[in-house]
């Protein structure tokens, strides 16, 4: 622990979350809206895998809280689900890092689907839950975009020396 170089590049981490937020908010046509990947979850998982000593459950909770404020959902809904995702990604990070990219994508599918299921449960308890199968599309699209997110983020992390 003591011989780790001084942490820097925190700005890059928060900028990446900012960009993920903008991608989450940016208006899409009605037909494409349901396919929007869960950008925030993907970025969160990436940082949990790459820098598990810096980005963990609390970051997940904070990002989820902001997402709750933006979406107008019950405060704590996305905070809880992203905290759970961050916890799982942190627990499994040594294993996931070794997987080939395809297998990584499948794990991402599972994690995003899990977060979506938690959201579905809680919104079902608190009132109205969406009841069509297209609700699960973001999990699939997140899986598809994961390799690109992974390579892009790794390049960014190496260029700016975030550690």
């Amino acid at each position: 622990m003591s011989n780790r170089p001084a942490a820097h590049g925190g700005i890059i981490i928060w900028l990446s979350f900012g960009v993920a937020f903008i991608l989450t908010m940016i208006p899409l046509p009605e037909t494409l809206e349901i396919y929007r990947p869960e950008w925030l979850t993907l970025i969160l998982i990436y940082w949990c895998l790459a820098l598990p000593h810096r980005v963990r459950v609390f970051t997940g909770w904070l990002v989820g809280f902001l997402l709750d404020v933006h979406m107008g959902s019950v405060l704590g809904l996305h905070a809880l689900t992203l905290a759970v995702v961050a916890y799982l990604a942190y627990k499994l990070h040594i294993r996931i890092r070794l997987y080939p990219l395809l297998q990584q994508s499948l794990i991402i599918l599972l994690l995003v689907a899990l977060s979506q299921m938690l959201v579905l449960w809680i919104s079902g308890v608190t009132g109205n839950a969406p009841s069509n199968w297209s609700y699960w599309m973001p999990s699939l699209t997140s899986m598809v975009v994961w390799p690109w997110v992974f390579f892009l983020m790794r390049a960014i992390r190496r260029i700016y020396g975030v550690n």
Binding site: G18, F21, I22, M25, I26, P27, F65, L66, V69, H70, L75
Partner: peptide
């Protein structure tokens, strides 16, 4: 928690503005 929500929303306002810029 309404106060918390409206205070935190000020953090999101710049992001929302950027997101709506293309449109």
């Amino acid at each position: 928690l309404d106060g918390v929500r409206s205070t935190v929303s000020i953090l999101l306002y710049p992001l929302q503005t950027i997101a709506s810029t293309p449109t």
